[in-house]
Nucleic acid binder design. Structure first.
Length: 348
DNA sequence: CTTAACATGAAACCTTAG
DNA sequence: CTAAGGTTTCATGTTAAG
């Protein structure tokens, strides 16, 4: 799962032909989970001008897996990665765990970072199971422990002791600055939730890197479902100045995180918060676009709640309550295209 | 009212053996 | 080719405690 290519791997594709209707401006970038129910990505592609999805696992960029699909109309030649490369194995990312890591735990990469962590009861159960055996644990015990470690992304923090990742460790793996989601009234569980829903910065920045030459004077960004600001952080770390950013995000804690980052990094552009994508109708968009001459890039990863395998209750596909917001991405992108090109919208 | 802890499978893909 | 087995997954609902 390397899409059109990732750094340090062969089989790079540097050329593709986009459908006529997909050509910008603006550039657009849509993201969601790769392992969605059957047919979902076919539908997503069809609604986004028949652009072929690019499926990439972020394990090629960091120490954790993250299988995602991206539909975008960005150029794909002359991409470059953020430097320095983040640690790409568990041992490099968490050197202190090495001392306690048993030889029979052969993991070198973590699994996907999710929104919940393992219970204390589980790590306690694992400790007790291991303490009962002196020396090498029985194969059955090893199998059980390893299975739980994979399932819950546990790391070794002491003799017979495993633990879930701390929020700041998740921030690091995803490529965010330390303490990005800390403070300002956000709870620990909300940090896990916001981080678990986010982009992996190095992956997205690799795709965005082709924009650096094109927008030396800065970029106007429409960031839908912006969350904790993955797109903004990626562009910033690439050294692409942010001129006008319109960020749409339903959760107040996430809007606060992005606003706080915006101020801490001394951004010189303007950040406009919008709470709900439903507020973005034709009139509002026309007004915004008139203010600063149009968007260069429209980014969004719409909710995956009804697509991900982690959801035991309502994995209903794109028509699900939350995941149907994908169609708002399409609606808004289409409106932006039409307003900027002076044509009439196909959507009523 | 928040926050935290905890229990709760299955779809879809992959590998392997035959 | 098929079947069996292995592996992974941006989560939700309930309960309790503050």
């Amino acid at each position: 799962m390397i899409g059109f290519g990732v750094p340090n791997e062969p089989d790079q594709i540097t050329h593709r032909v986009l459908p006529e209707a997909a050509l910008g401006p603006p550039y657009f970038y849509y993201e969601n989970v790769a392992l969605a129910p059957k047919g979902v990505w076919t539908t997503i592609s069809r609604f986004l001008y028949d652009v072929e999805p690019e499926f990439v696992d972020s394990k090629f960029f960091c120490a954790a897996a993250r299988k995602r699909g991206y539909v975008h109309n960005l150029p794909i030649d002359n991409r470059f990665p953020l430097l320095p490369f983040p640690p790409r194995t568990i041992h490099e990312a968490f050197p202190l765990t090495r001392k306690w890591w048993p030889s029979w735990d052969t993991r070198t990469k973590l699994n996907c970072l999710q929104t919940c962590i393992a219970s204390a009861r589980l790590t306690d159960k694992i400790r007790k199971a291991l303490e009962d055996s002196d020396g090498e644990p029985l194969l059955g015990i090893q199998k059980f422990v390893l299975e739980q470690c994979r399932k819950w992304n546990l790391v070794w923090v002491g003799r017979n002791k495993v633990a879930p990742l701390e929020p700041d460790e998740v921030e690091m793996l995803l490529g965010f600055p330390r303490n990005h989601t800390r403070g300002g009234g956000i709870s620990r569980t909300d940090r896990y939730k916001s981080l678990g829903n986010s982009f992996q910065i190095d992956t997205v920045a690799y795709h965005f890197s082709v924009l650096k030459d094109k927008f030396p004077g800065g970029i106007n960004l429409l960031s839908l479902f912006s969350g904790i600001g993955g797109a903004e952080v990626a562009l910033h770390r690439l050294g692409i100045p942010l001129k006008n950013v319109v960020a749409v995000e339903i959760a107040e804690v996430n809007r606060n995180i992005l606003r706080s980052w915006w101020e801490q990094t001394n951004q010189r552009g303007t950040l406009t918060d919008i709470q709900d994508v439903q507020e973005l109708n034709g009139d509002r968009l026309e007004q915004l676009i008139k203010n600063f001459g149009g968007f260069d890039l429209v980014v969004g990863g719409s909710p995956c709640n009804n697509l991900t395998g982690s959801n035991r209750y309502h994995r209903d596909g794109l028509e699900g309550k939350d995941s149907a917001l994908f169609f708002d991405f399409c609606r808004i992108l289409d409106l932006v295209k039409c307003i900027m090109n002076g044509t009439k919208s196909m959507i009523v």
